[in-house]
Simulated scan of single mutants.
Amino acid sequence: MTAAFPVARFGQVIGLLGGSFDPPHAGHVHISKVALKRFGLDRLWWLVSPGNPLKANGPAPLADRMQAARAIMQHPRVTITDIEARIGTRYTAETLVALQQHYPGVRFVWLMGADNLAQFHLWQDWRWIMENVPIGVVARPGDRISARMSKAARVYAQSRLPGRAAHILGRAEAPAWTFVNLPLSDQSSSAIRKRGEW
């Protein structure tokens, strides 16, 4: 990897929070801080994506979203990156394969909100993701029941770590996932766009 890509050391546990960040908001910041603490992460990367294959309308320009993300998320252990645009991946599974190849010995943890777990079975190669990268799920208001009843949660029920063991997620062998049920900010990027604030 070139200097334009995030730095990672062998053996580190790095959380990956992917998304359009259109726009980034306080909810993303809160999820990141909770994930660093609860999942025992050494570092966390925001993967600001070029676009979301599951969304019909394209996001704001990548440069604008990167700038906004860096302005709102200022933490010494969080890196804002456009690595997906740089390596040319479109789907999460492709990104994870590329990261594992380019960062041998680094342990990645995929992070998502509970709303994403509810529709995770629609993602490209979702079973591969579950079976190759530990997943930390952070609850958001209103998403708890649908996430726990989701196809992914049912298929991989035996791979779920209890919440009290969330801190070992990054050292667990996939498939492994855990659900951290916390009261979080109910902000969403779509609500901010609807209000015309972005």
Rank of each mutant, 00 (worst) to 15 (best):
G196H: 07
N52W: 02
P23D: 09
F179W: 04
M149N: 11
P53N: 12
V138N: 04
I129G: 06
P162H: 07
K55F: 05
H25Y: 03
H167F: 06
K194I: 14
A191I: 11
V137G: 07
Y103G: 12
Q101R: 09
A157K: 07
R70K: 11
I168H: 10
R193W: 01
P104R: 07
R9T: 15
I129W: 00
W123M: 12
K55C: 14
L96Q: 03
E173W: 03
A153Y: 02
V29G: 08
E197P: 12
L184A: 12
M149D: 10
H121S: 14
E131D: 12
L184R: 10
A93F: 00
L47P: 03
G142D: 08
V180Y: 05
S190E: 12
A93C: 09
K55T: 11
L111I: 04
P53F: 04
Y103I: 05
T89E: 05
W46V: 09
T81V: 07
A157F: 02
A152Q: 01
L44D: 04
I135E: 00
R43Y: 07
T2Y: 08
D42Y: 06
R144P: 01
S159H: 04
Q187E: 15
A165V: 04
V133E: 03
G27S: 10
F179E: 15
Q12D: 08
H167A: 14
P175D: 12
L169K: 04
M130Y: 00
V78T: 05
S146I: 08
K55V: 09
D82T: 05
K194A: 14
Y103C: 09
H75Y: 04
V78F: 01
R144E: 11
T2I: 11
H75E: 11
A98F: 02
D115G: 09
L111K: 01
I72D: 04
A191K: 13
V137T: 03
P162Y: 03
P162E: 15
V106N: 07
G11C: 09
F120Y: 02
V155L: 06
P141S: 14
S185L: 12
I145C: 10
R43F: 08
V7D: 10
A118S: 09
P162V: 06
A4R: 10
M149T: 14
M149P: 03
I72R: 05
R171G: 13
V13W: 01
G163T: 08
V109P: 03
G142K: 05
A98N: 06
S32A: 15
D22I: 06
V133H: 00
